[in-house]
């Protein structure tokens, strides 16, 4: 049963991108275990405001695990110690009375810190802009049932398309690699006949952009897959490698 617990928080505070940051320690009493992790931070922030201090800045929006905005590294895990959830779906019942919880921002050269726990993930948008789409204009599309698609393939494409672009893969990776994110998009579109046409071009363009933005080289540690809240498989990375190498050898 959920009860009230007392916890100690160690939170990374950093005023701006160029300022030096440090950990601050806060204590919270009587936190209901049925509340979500972000609701616990809301309580902390309201307490800080009432004490005349600056609240902790963190990104969040939908709070139902789909927008990909929340991004906290909690006790050594992106999105915290629960499985297959984003930070907003993590609940305080995963913690015990007297626990110390360390909260850090995503750390990677590709995701510079904006303030406290907020990071800039616009690099992901830039990678998608480089080629993560099917080049069709609005209008003129043929009837949706014109090209049948094998159910297995459509399902596999959907598995890859479930990516929410939160960046936990990069945050978990010791190499700061964005391969799982890129692989998910390349796989999603390469598996469908509509996206197949541009598959080679897309793989090359997205990988080039990913490299240009300073993300690291994948060494297949698999940390990304373990921490991904949407269970994106690293076999997508193998597919990306295949697509990329095929495209390059063809050139």
């Amino acid at each position: 049963m959920d009860k009230n617990i007392n916890i100690k928080l160690r939170i990374w505070r950093q005023k701006g991108p160029k300022e030096k940051g440090a950990f601050e320690t806060y204590e919270l009493e009587n936190v209901y275990q049925g509340s979500s992790f972000l609701e616990m931070l809301d309580i902390l922030n309201n307490k800080l405001i009432c004490e005349g201090k600056e609240p902790v800045a963190f990104d969040h929006d939908c709070r139902e695990g789909i927008c990909g905005m929340c991004s906290l590294y909690i006790n050594g895990h992106p999105h915290g110690p629960d499985e297959d959830v984003t930070t907003c779906q993590l609940h305080m019942r995963k913690f015990n009375d007297g626990d110390t919880i360390t909260i850090e921002p995503w750390r990677s050269a590709g995701f510079p810190i904006i303030k406290d726990l907020m990071v800039d993930r616009s690099a992901f948008d830039k990678i998608i802009q480089a080629g993560g789409y099917v080049s069709v204009n609005t209008g003129g599309a043929p009837d949706a049932n014109t090209i049948p698609i094998e159910k297995d393939k459509a399902d596999a494409a959907m598995d890859a398309a479930a990516c929410i672009g939160c960046g936990a893969c990069v945050a978990a990776c010791k190499n700061g690699s964005a391969m799982l994110f890129v692989a998910a998009k390349v796989s999603h579109l390469a598996l469908l006949p509509q996206g197949r046409i541009e598959a080679a071009k897309r793989a090359k363009a997205m990988v080039a952009k990913m490299d240009e933005l300073g993300f690291g080289n994948c060494t297949n540690t698999g940390a990304c897959e373990i921490e991904c809240p949407k269970n994106i498989s690293i076999t997508n990375i193998a597919r990306l490698n295949r697509e990329f190498l095929k495209a390059k050898f063809k050139d």
Binding site: Y133, V134, V136, T138, G139, A141, P142, D143, A144, N145, P148, I149, E150, K151, A154, D155, A157, M158, A161, H188, L189, L192, Q194, G195
Partner: peptide
């Protein structure tokens, strides 16, 4: 109807039957 056509052309992975249709 145009919306569904447009989305499929963009690569939206709608659920499909075993025969490959939507």
């Amino acid at each position: 109807n145009n919306i569904i056509d447009q989305c499929v052309a963009q690569g939206v992975p709608f659920a499909r039957e075993y025969g490959g249709l939507l």
